[in-house]
Amino acid sequence: MGALLDVQHLTVTYGAVHAVRDVSFQLDSGEILGIVGESGSGKSTLGYAVTKLLRPPGTIQSGSVIFEGQDLVPLAEKDLRKIRWSQLAVVMQSGMNALNPVTTIRKQFEDAILAHKPMGRAAIDERVREMLRLVNIEARYADHYPHELSGGMKQRVAIAMALVLEPKVLIFDEPTTALDVVVQRFIVQNLKALREKYNFSALFISHDLGTVLEIADRVAVMYGGKIVEIQDARALLRNPWHPYTEALLKCFPDPRSDTIEVVGIPGTPPDLADVRPGCAFAPRCHRALDMCRTVTPVYEPVGDGGVACHWAEIQGGIAHG
């Protein structure tokens, strides 16, 4: 099966800030690709760039976003509008605040549906009922206003709205971050069930490696605007290649283990205005070699993933040789 979404050499800047740097990845049909990174890693910018929802001064400097054979980067806004929501839908970081506060839930569904295809009153009502049932919300809430719903309910409505036109690709940007842990768990379970039913593909962007590992098939790890590693989720959990992934994993202890230590990563996150050569993680990396400070590691594909790390490359070479 070919890639549904093929991002190649994407670079995005905000003035002097290089937020996304030469990022390439593919999203396969039916796959959930997790994109994990901390603040300033470029993960949200990547999400916006893929849907071309960047706000100025955010600019795509180079690269392509090929969706079903068509490059979205040069596409005009009016053509993008046809694709967005119906083919490629987004659930925003504060999806719960993305709802219009002065119209009912039903009206918001209606607007989204009618913007893309004509549909009768009764059919819309039926569709709204069905979508709300999918995310476990009683049909009566269709006639409520967003403020009458709890945060978790609003986020589920936002997910249902993104799904209403049955898009092929969904982009979730931190969909659970602002929610209580129990509600987060519920939404993650809900998403898994929805994927079974709709077989959509998704980019799941989050800082929370634990959640990403639970929901994603493959995981891309971002640091300093770059993808430093992509691996199958289970494999990444057992055997991370990049030292950053390794260090980040240690920050998420198994909640059921006998002893839990306070583990972090020493040092501070990189400055995205810094474009000097070398690995952005080198100053915080316990495996850093001399060359890591001067030579930028190149992303090397390995299987259906890859890694950008001098140390991993040398280790790999030893292992293969």
Binding site: N136, F186, D208, G210
Partner: peptide, 17 residues
């Protein structure tokens, strides 16, 4: 409810709906 990728599908005992 804490994400736990190490566990094999921990199902919560509470109906979260």
């Amino acid at each position: 409810s804490i994400p736990n990728p190490w566990a094999e599908d921990l199902e919560p005992t509470v109906d979260l709906s």
